[in-house]
Design a binder for these strands. Structure first.
Lengths: 231, 231
DNA sequence: CGCCGTCTTGACTCGCCTCAACCTCGGTGG
DNA sequence: CCACCGAGGTTGAGGCGAGTCAAGACGGCG
């Protein structure tokens, strides 16, 4: 196994207050692993044996209904912890995590969690902060689903993805991982048909440009207006 | 201020592993307070100065959209902690808490939070466990809102309330706090009209009995069927 | 007694889902 | 190099669930 570089972690909030030796110790216990697009990192209901830190790529967190429909709970970007079931005193994962594109992640066995939170200053606080942010995001989504029309929800969804993991390109901001109409419908609680119609309409109006599994937002401000500025 | 009895806390999960002296210390720092129906305990966005433990009654957690609509995020029952913003490293409350009926709650200043989690074994774990449960519940609601029909959502909502805080009465299980059609619509993302129509229909079929702000479920199993058994 | 919050019910409308057919790539194998 | 195939995407037609509009009944409280 390659020796991991300490600079990988030094800038990330959960580790930013630690010294070199501490980071070294953490890295030496970590298992790095690459995941190809579509690969499942862990599955809903599986025993929570490890917790993860995403170094590069995007992780898609999914739940499946009894009837087989999938809904996408959230996306996780580089630098974020995920699979932190131990933080919630859970012994199984509450959702499935798959690689939305090629990903690189570190992981540790859950037995190290208590050690990390106790020994490393700021680690616990920062972990719970991200948890709080996700909780807030989930509340926003509930609000959206309960009160907004499909068009607003899809607009808000695109905006969220572009802000959280947008890459600057010639004509605007591109969502930095492959994404289908189906995916978007699973995030917004609608059908791929409706998403397709909306994107077509927006493309005619010059708000977005899209190709197969790629979306570029060219006029974010107009999406903000469409979204009802609520999310 | 009356001296509070130690038996109040001894049975509750966050405190169950503590000895009498510890519980005494916790109680001596607590402020008990009664809240009448409809009273706001704390508001969304307000600085998080205290965290709470509900001893009796039901707390309704609410968010308001920019357009003034309200949505009910969850209900909190006796024995549960709430307003635990400090657990998520937040300095403002993410939602508004109002008393759904008459309530009695203890509260402590947030500066005691770190002390509680460090000094009292099991307190942190149990707090994070409830947090995890709420997060799971929120995920379920997102799934419901995204995939289920209104009828199923309302059925599931009634079931949830009856399970979490149902009181046995002559003909079935009664929801133990006052609740309007409007309230239910705010939980399920629909309108009071639709809820009213559903309840009328169910009453004709003998599944529920309802009066002004009171609902009794007489045939829970039939609601389970209607709910699609998904959550 | 009168008012207001709650609840009910009918009639109408329309957003979005469903069903269905077809197109367009990009990759693969002959 | 081309034919084929499947995943992803587009677009139209039609129907229905549930929201909106409207009118009123009921019951409790001041």
């Amino acid at each position: 196994m390659n020796k991991l570089d300490e600079s990988l972690l030094a800038k990330l909030p959960p580790f930013s207050r630690l010294d070199r030796a501490q980071i070294r110790a953490i890295l030496d216990q970590a298992s790095p692993k690459r995941y190809d697009e579509g690969v499942t990192v862990f599955g809903e209901g599986m025993p929570a044996e490890r917790f993860y830190l995403l170094l590069d790529g995007t992780i898609r967190v999914i739940r499946t209904t009894p009837t087989g429909e999938q809904i996408i709970a959230l996306h996780i970007g580089p630098g974020q912890l995920f699979g932190i079931a131990p933080a919630l005193a859970r012994d199984t994962y509450p959702a499935t995590a798959v690689a939305a594109g090629e990903c690189l992640a570190l992981s540790w066995p859950v037995r190290l969690w208590p050690e990390f939170t106790q020994s490393y200053e700021g680690f616990a606080t920062e972990s719970y902060r991200t948890l709080g942010e996700r909780l807030g995001e989930m509340q926003n989504r509930i609000t959206e689903l309960a009160t907004q029309q499909v068009e607003q929800r899809v607009a808000a969804c695109l905006l969220r993805m572009v802000t959280q993991s947008g890459r600057k390109v010639e004509n605007g901001l591109e969502i930095s991982f492959p994404i289908t109409r189906q995916n978007i419908s699973e995030m917004t609680g609608t059908t791929l048909h409706t998403v397709s119609r909306l994107l077509s309409a927006w493309e005619r109006e010059g708000i977005v440009e899209s190709a197969r599994r790629r979306i570029v937002v060219t006029a974010p401000h107009r999406l903000v207006i469409l979204s009802g500025a609520a999310g």
